[in-house]
Every structure is written in structure tokens, then in C-alpha cells.
């Protein structure tokens, strides 16, 4: 059994989601290789991947065609490498979710999405129905294609390995798609999916300015990442990449503070594995209180500034 992990990276940095994916790959019991597909800045990422504990080899595919991780270009590269591997794993990020099923179909394999644990050589647990049920599934395919829920696997140590880096090449530009632009949401804050503390706001925050005025100072005090419910994103308080939930980002911080969020199942799906959950909501019957460790049923417009002041 040997596994190939797709490295998640941007601006020349290895994303920590890769580290959790390496752990999941190692749990399959065989050698773990990491593929870094990218443009000019990919060599630095490959060097970082080579240092990750447990990685035996790094494959570096450096080509302008791979610079933006376009699935049309990257999937054939991966499918071409899979002759030598029994499993392909990608983190369940938007990049992984875009590329991996394309690889799976090219290999005629049914992907196992968003695994929570490795139960056997070909069996895994995964959430279904917005995490309201956990299925244990076993694959009968010759090869495995997997996306990994990175919050449920420990991160492999980023230092300690010294894997060789081997250049590889694939078919390159497929001529089907091109990258136009990325409107990146600039943020100095900790990354939402890996932060220790997350402060999330919901519809009750009224508008973008109020959201910013109330949520940001509290997040600053706690060194926290900011999150949001779908309703807050839809209403334009904050951009899409802050959405926590079934169809947004999955978070599992030490502390999650939900402010003016009702606790719809789709929201809970993204945060209920947090260690400590605090909810502030003026409705004492809000479902969020059913999963909160500490609930404060009060008006957020008074409670949040007071909390920020007292921390």
C-alpha cells in the first residue's frame, strides 16, 4: 500500500491542511508521497513538504499549467501518476473537492468524501446528512480516492523529515479552462480552519459595519479567527469564505463563540466538534443552546462590548 497526497498550498506556502492529510494517508499503513503541483513558486513548497515527518518522497510538478490548480490540468497529472499508488488523498478544501472527484472518475473509482477516520485498509467513517449521521463505508475499488476532513486528524509534524524531491511532469495545459482572477479576502487574522479560537456572527449583527464593530474587537482580544453563518454571508456582512457549516468551512477550535446565530443544523455541522462552545443569543430557546457549553441568553449589542471589555 502506498499513498499519494496532494499538497494544498498558496503563495509559495504549504497549507497546514496538507499535514492532517499526511496523517490520514499514513493511517493506511504504507509509504506516503506528496505531490506538489504548481507554478514557479512550487519548489519552495516542495522543500517544505520534504521536511514533513513521515513523508518518504515529494513529487514536484512545476508548470504554468498547474499554477492555479485548475482541475482540468491537475487531474490528468495525478491520474497519470496513480499507476504507482494504491490511494490518492486530498484535503477536503475547495481545491481538493474540485480536483479529487475528477481524478476518481478518470480512474473509474468511487471517491470516499470527507473521511473522519480510517477504520481498516479500505473502510472509513464519513459524515452524511450534514453530520447528523456517521456512515462507515468500505470501498471495493482497486484504488482509493479520498478527501480528508482535516479537523479530525492530527497534523503531521512540519519538521523532522528529509524526503527527496523528484521532478515529475504530466500532460500540462488541457486547453479547456483558464484562470482569470482571484479576489482574495485579505486578512491578518488566523486562518479560520486552523485557529484556536473562532468568533462567529450571525444574522442578528444587522449589517457589515455592525458586524465589524462588534465581532472584530472581540476576535482581536482573543487572537481569534472570524466566522459567520450563511445568513450573515448572504446578507453581505462578510465574504463567502467566512461561512462555517455543512456547505462552508468546517472548524474545530478550542473555543467557538457563536453570536446571534440560531444554530440551524447546517451551521452546527461546521462547528459542533469545537472543544468549548459559547453562545450568545437573546432567544433562550435558540437551538444553539442545546449544544453550547456556556449559554448567555441576552441582547448581544450589550453583551458583546461588555465581554470584549472584560477579557
Amino acid at each position: 500500500m502506498s499513498a499519494l497526497v496532494l499538497a494544498e498550498h498558496d503563495s509559495g506556502k504549504l497549507n497546514p491542511a496538507t499535514l492532517a492529510t499526511v496523517t490520514a494517508a499514513a493511517a493506511l499503513g504504507g509509504a506516503v508521497h506528496v505531490l506538489v503541483a504548481g507554478g514557479d513558486d512550487a519548489a519552495g513548497v516542495a522543500d517544505a513538504a520534504a521536511k514533513v515527518a513521515g513523508v518518504e518522497k515529494v513529487l514536484l510538478a512545476s508548470d504554468a499549467a498547474y499554477a492555479h490548480q485548475l482541475a482540468e490540468n491537475v487531474a490528468p497529472l495525478i491520474a497519470g501518476l496513480m499507476d504507482s499508488y494504491d490511494a490518492f488523498l486530498a484535503p477536503a478544501t475547495t481545491t481538493g473537492k474540485n480536483v479529487a472527484p475528477r481524478v476518481a472518475a478518470m480512474l473509474d473509482v468511487m471517491q470516499v468524501s470527507d473521511i473522519l477516520s480510517v477504520e481498516g485498509p479500505k473502510s472509513f467513517t464519513r459524515p452524511i446528512y450534514a453530520g447528523n449521521a456517521i456512515a462507515t463505508v468500505e470501498s471495493s475499488d482497486a484504488k482509493l480516492v479520498i478527501t480528508v476532513r482535516t479537523t479530525t486528524f492530527d497534523k503531521a509534524a512540519p519538521e523532522g523529515g528529509s524526503a527527496p524531491v523528484e521532478p515529475v511532469s504530466g500532460p500540462g495545459e488541457a486547453g479547456l479552462s483558464s484562470f482569470v482572477s482571484l479576489e482574495a479576502s485579505a486578512s491578518e487574522r488566523p486562518d479560520l480552519t486552523s485557529a484556536n479560537v473562532v468568533v462567529s456572527g450571525g444574522r442578528a449583527l444587522k449589517d457589515a459595519a455592525t458586524f465589524e464593530q462588534l465581532i472584530t474587537p472581540l476576535a482581536d482580544k482573543l487572537g481569534a479567527a472570524v466566522g459567520a453563518s450563511r445568513a450573515a454571508v448572504d446578507a453581505g456582512y462578510i465574504s463567502n469564505d467566512y461561512q462555517v457549516g455543512q456547505t462552508g468551512k468546517i472548524v474545530a477550535p478550542e473555543l467557538y463563540i457563536a453570536i446571534g446565530i440560531s444554530g440551524a443544523i447546517q451551521h452546527l455541522a461546521g462547528m459542533k466538534d469545537s472543544k468549548v462552545i459559547v453562545a450568545i443569543n437573546k432567544d433562550p430557546d435558540a437551538p444553539i443552546f442545546q449544544i453550547a457549553d456556556y449559554g448567555l441568553a441576552t441582547d448581544l449589542f450589550e453583551a458583546v462590548p461588555e465581554l470584549t471589555g472584560k477579557l
Binding site: K272, F289, L296
Partner: peptide
């Protein structure tokens, strides 16, 4: 291609406590 071996409820999270003030 996938066989579902079992489907379970996720571990239930117990509701904690309500606090009276900030």
C-alpha cells in the same frame, strides 16, 4: 462500489449550562 457497513448517530453533545451574566 462502496458498501455501507453501518450508520450511527454522531456522539451527542450535552447541553452545558446557562450563565446569568458576562
Amino acid at each position: 462500489r462502496l458498501t455501507t457497513l453501518k450508520v450511527e448517530e454522531p456522539p451527542v453533545r450535552q447541553a452545558g449550562e446557562m450563565v446569568g451574566s458576562v
